[in-house]
Structures are given as structure tokens and as C-alpha cells.
Design a protein around this nucleic acid. Structure first.
Lengths: 111, 111
DNA sequence: CTTCATAGGTAGGAAAGCTACCTGTCAGGG
DNA sequence: CCCTGACAGGTAGCTTTCCTACCTATGAAG
């Protein structure tokens, strides 16, 4: 699946995976891939800048932690981020309902 | 609702409204607004260029028709466009299912 | 002629994501 | 020590898409 279509929803996805616990960037990419059953395979060039955007916006906080002798920047949801996620969720429902009205025929899957 | 979030899905929406019959640009905007119950109120600066893109891609064909003594450019779905729409529909299902996996908790709407 | 509603159109700008590239650590093989 | 490969983080420049703002034009009302 093309991630280009994510436009505007990527941030929400990122917040959603962080909702289950702090992760470092690379692990976020893997979580996205795992939870989407391989549908979302985002390049680092997409995710890292997005995380920085989220941090600038105050939605996530990052901290360097040394794991296995290696520096990993771990991202964690802030309170603001949690609120933003809730917001994005309702935004997503509205959006998918609206677009679905046009693209999901709905009651006619038989054929 | 912000149409910015449409990114990449606008074309599909336009094809979807044209599926029900040929319309001119302005009428397409009104159809979008009507069928979305006011959620989608796209500016002409968004729709007209999009229609031209679709025409270049061969998904729609346009023809000038004189109605009420006025020239109106009427857009119609082509066969290619119909196929593209079907394609976009399945793309949309995949997309909404994938993003929904993260943003729709799903089985917990009671609350 | 001016104003309003309808209708079509363009230019320039901003945002988001992608491709391609670069840096650096740790482990294994030579 | 050097090289390679898997992991991890990061940046620059490009393209696409959509939006804001503006312009043109018709027909009716005054």
C-alpha cells in the first residue's frame, strides 16, 4: 500500500503506536509494519522527520537511552499528545465516514 | 472538515460523483457538499485543477455544452475512469482498514 | 453601469511524504 | 586491523496535492 495516501494521518498513526508504550524510531516503523500486517512499510525518511514534527508540536517527548551499548532515541506520548490522539481519532472517524459515503457503496457487496 | 486531509482521495471522490452522471464543475462541488451533508465544501481552486488532472489522465472527458445560453464544461466518466474508480475504491478500503486498525478501537463503541 | 449569483479558470505558496544519501555502532569473517 | 551486514538515526531536495487569492464572464435586477 502506498503511504503517500497517509497524508495528514501519519501523525495520528505515530501517536497511536506510541499509545501502547514508548518506542524508538526504528521500533515504531516495525510496530507499524507488524500491526498493519505488512501494509505499512514506512521509510525512515518519512518517520524520523514526522517524529521531530510531533516533538516540536509537543505531542511526544524524546529521550536518549543506552540499550545494548547503543544510543537510541526513545519517544513517548505526552499529555498533549494523548489529547491530540483523541482528537485525531474523532477526526479520522469523520473523515472516513465522509469519504466512505462516496467510496463505500456499503449495502451492496454482493456481486 | 478540512479538505486538506483528502490528499490523494479527492480524485476518487470526483470520480464517484461523476459515476452517477455527467456534471459540470460547479455542480460537482455542490454534489460533493450535498452528499457529504456539508462536510465537504471544496473551493473551485481545488476542484477545477483536479478535474483537469483527471482529464489529462484520461479518467474523465469534458465537453462544452450551452445551457441557458451559458457555456458550461460538462465532465463525464470514461471507461478508464470507471476502472480507475473501482481501483480507487479498493484502495480506499485497504487504506481505511489499515488506518482504522490504529485509529478505530473498533469493538468498543459503547460508551 | 453596478451588484449579485452562477460558472470557469490561473498563479503562487505551503505542507506532507518520498527517494536517495550519509553517519555511526556492534558482530562476524579474514 | 579491515570489510561487510544488520541495526539505528538523520538530512536535503524533489514532487504532488491542495489552498488562498485573484481574475474573467454571463444574465438578471435596479
Amino acid at each position: 500500500m502506498k503511504a503517500q495516501a497517509l497524508h495528514g494521518h501519519l501523525d495520528a498513526l505515530l501517536l497511536a503506536v506510541l499509545e501502547r508504550g514508548a518506542l524508538h524510531g526504528y521500533a515504531i516503523i516495525e510496530a507499524l509494519r507488524a500491526r498493519s500486517e505488512g501494509q505499512l512499510d514506512l521509510p525512515t525518511g518519512t518517520v524520523y522527520p514526522a517524529l521531530r514534527r510531533l516533538e516540536r508540536a509537543g505531542h511526544v517527548a524524546s529521550a536518549w537511552s543506552t540499550v545494548n551499548g547503543r544510543e537510541r532515541r526513545t519517544y513517548e506520548l505526552t499529555d498533549t499528545g494523548r489529547r491530540a490522539l483523541a482528537d485525531q481519532r474523532s477526526g479520522w472517524r469523520e473523515f472516513s465516514a465522509t469519504v466512505g459515503r462516496f467510496l463505500d457503496p456499503g449495502p451492496a457487496p454482493a456481486g
